[in-house]
Amino acid sequence: MEIDDLTPDERNAFKSLSNERTPPDLLESEIIGQLTARKLIKAKGKKWKRIVYPVAATFIFLLGFLVGDVERGINKEEAYMLILFEDENFHVRNSTDAAIEYGLWNAKINHSGILMDGQELWNEGYRISTNGVEKLSSAHESRITGYFVLEATTEEEAIAVARESPHVKYGGSIQVKRFRVR
């Protein structure tokens, strides 16, 4: 089999195609956020900024999320939350491969239009109860490490999304819960 050459017309047409496209500004900040969270790049700014900014960002995020739900009109009957748990059985052999798998799963459900929101949660945190404030830090304790908000048409659809998650493969578990939108 021989490769026929391009005609001059075709060659010119290929040359005329643009080689660059400016990505959305948000993409840069999302990537920087991911790299910072994974400690692949140093967080920008002084110590007080590193504390104040995330708090402010969380506040803005929550505010946007609450407002966003009203604007998006999340269907009260079809709102599900996936709550991701990890314990000592959770084991990732190659974190890069895992990042890709989670990213692609995320992209798939995002693309399908049922993903409303989702975030990874830090291991560290606090439990507040009548016993007071207890620091969560044990790596072996079952802990919530992420959540996803879905607008699935059925419970089966939400379960199917959870089953496809690489999280289960790595030994984590997922609770699927319908929630009430007030």
Binding site: S18, N19, E20, R21, T22, P23, P24, L27, E30, I31, Q34, L35, R38, L40, T96, A99, I100, G103, L104, N106, A107, N110, H111
Partner: peptide
């Protein structure tokens, strides 16, 4: 990004590919 768009023919997927590419 231009290449990812041509490959995937989808903006959301192209952005996810670029994002994961930089992480790797």
């Amino acid at each position: 990004y231009q290449m990812a768009l041509r490959l995937s023919q989808d903006e959301a997927i192209a952005q996810e590919l670029v994002q994961q590419m930089w992480v790797v």
